[in-house]
Design a protein around this nucleic acid. Structure first.
Lengths: 168, 168
DNA sequence: GAGCGGCTGATACAATATAACAGGGCCGGG
DNA sequence: CCCGGCCCTGTTATATTGTATCAGCCGCTC
């Protein structure tokens, strides 16, 4: 079946798991493609990567503003546009929020998000099998797919073990 | 593979395909469950069903207000809450918009939306096969799924034939 | 009639996202 | 050197989407 888990296995606190990796990868990718990995973009990515939950643009702006220098939400949105465009960040449609990409891939598809209702943590999965089956089904219906959004809500392993229940 | 297409095969104009069906089904379902299928709820459902594209809550409010009597967005949201809760309407997360459910089911899962970038039309599909494979993959990752969102963007058959391209 | 529950109307507000314009930094051409 | 273009950022204003709150209405029951 060949799925592949991306995230941290225990998505609760603001751990910096994989954190450095993300920044390093971003720098490399931008160098390769001759893109500008500016300060703002780096800060935004770093902020998102430091959190295992999806973050709203305004949350990011607020957190970046904590250091004295105010950062407007618009600026954050622009950085997020850039980052999502290049697959460094993903938008979680069901939450109007963003997470840093935990993969080594450039592509953005075959991608799948697991969102825990208890802890709010999110994990990223890739499943080529699911993607191909999805494409097959969709194509049968006469549709030509270009992008896919798959978001699953439920309870993550850690929360289930601890018997935490969704607050709501 | 056993997929099942729900919508109108040609999702462009404001046809009333399946339109009556939706209302009739809603009435029956509400009678069965002893729910109130009020005027407002009926109007909202009818408005959505008359359109093959996802509609925003404010669009619905505006359209309902066209008849002289102003309907506030809040009211529409409340009706939509009711309708989605009972599976008569689905929310399209990637568009912040709503479509009427084209199925005979009460359940809300195994559900899949095809959104055309050219005409904006949307079709609904159910694929138990995809759902079960998705659940299997997710469960393998230690996750317990409770709800799933699958939205595919691309070009619908009708638009591809006509060589229409996405305006943007 | 009094009280209760579910639905609606209305206003205010919060949260999310984009538009529009000005300025700054870099860089290549003249 | 200076200019003009391009890209990125800052700032303000505004659009869009979604909730909170309170009051009134209607039908029902006691």
């Amino acid at each position: 079946m060949h799925n592949h888990v991306a995230g941290h296995a225990h998505p609760h606190a603001g751990e910096e798991a994989g954190h450095e990796d993300v920044l390093a990868r971003a720098e490399r990718l931008c160098r390769e493609r001759d893109l500008q990995f500016t300060r703002l973009r780096r800060d935004v990515l770093e902020t998102i990567a430091a959190e295992s939950k999806p973050m709203g643009a305004y949350d990011i702006a607020e957190r970046l503003s904590a250091g004295g220098k105010r950062v407007a939400a618009v600026s954050v949105y622009r950085a997020l546009d850039f980052l999502t465009e290049h697959g460094l960040v993903h938008r979680i449609a069901s939450r109007n929020a963003f997470v840093s990409c935990g993969h080594n891939h450039g592509e953005r598809d075959g991608l799948l998000f697991l969102i825990c209702r208890s802890c709010g943590g999110i994990d990223e999965l890739t499943s080529p099998a699911i993607e191909s089956q999805l494409d097959r089904a969709v194509t049968e219906a006469g549709f030509t797919p270009t992008s896919r959004i798959i978001e699953v809500e439920g309870e993550c392993g850690a929360c289930r073990e601890q018997g935490r229940s969704a607050g709501h």
